[in-house]
Design a protein around this nucleic acid. Structure first.
Lengths: 115, 115
DNA sequence: ATTTCAGTCAACCATTTAGTTGAATGAATT
DNA sequence: AATTCATTCAACTAAATGGTTGACTGAAAT
């Protein structure tokens, strides 16, 4: 069986968050615009304010966004940090891949025929 | 309104594909193991062969995996290529962010308040 | 000729997801 | 006192998702 890494859950949360096109748009607007209120954010999209609010909660849970609340107004701003987790995963995967290919060269020198 | 990039759809496909923990496990096993048959792949997981088959199709559609079919036997092997798309997206996002921060310094000197 | 086998396809089910509308909250403004 | 306002919460709907079981295919092995 395949071992499940401990940070798997967090990585899943991050990846699921950014796999939604609208959430990526949201994120893009956030990095372009900087801190912005939920309502103003919603104005740029053709979905309801509520939908935007929910998307933000998901981004927030993933740590991709943080919120500074000042009574009614919630200032939302992006946090690129968690995207590094994705990068780390990718890097690890590639390292495993490379390691295997290195090992393969040894096998090739022995001429062990296997495809 | 927010502009939608043309490669958005492909990126979504890739991200959705890897956002599924089991698919990441599948991918991990693939890079560790190299080309492997669907059935052998499935043996490592506690879900049905059919479920694995479906996951592979999704990975394949995203270009993360390719398949060499030889009659009944389908040899599956990973392709890290598309993960670069994720990286590119991330990099672009960060570049926008950095650009904005640079601009912000100018704004701070002018003190033009605008939301 | 029958069975075995690797894999997909099809139909179905339960859960999650993205969206909606319609409250409720409670300070600030009128 | 009544209204406005920014946001979330709750309930609902439709669609997508991940899983299952049960065919089906057609060469190879018995």
């Amino acid at each position: 069986m395949v071992e499940r890494l401990p940070d798997d859950q967090k990585l899943t949360e991050i990846l699921k968050a950014v796999s939604e096109p609208r959430r990526r748009e949201l994120l893009t607007l956030l990095v372009q615009h900087g801190p912005i209120r939920v309502t103003d954010l919603a104005r740029h999209f053709d979905i309801s304010l509520n939908a935007v609010s929910k998307h933000i909660k998901i981004l927030e849970a993933a740590g991709l966004v943080c919120r500074r609340t000042e009574w009614r107004e919630h200032l939302i701003e992006p946090d690129m940090g968690p995207v590094g987790e994705i990068d780390r995963w990718f890097r690890e995967l590639r390292s495993i891949w490379d390691k295997r290919l290195d090992g393969l060269e040894d096998v090739l020198s022995k001429e062990t025929d296997d495809e």
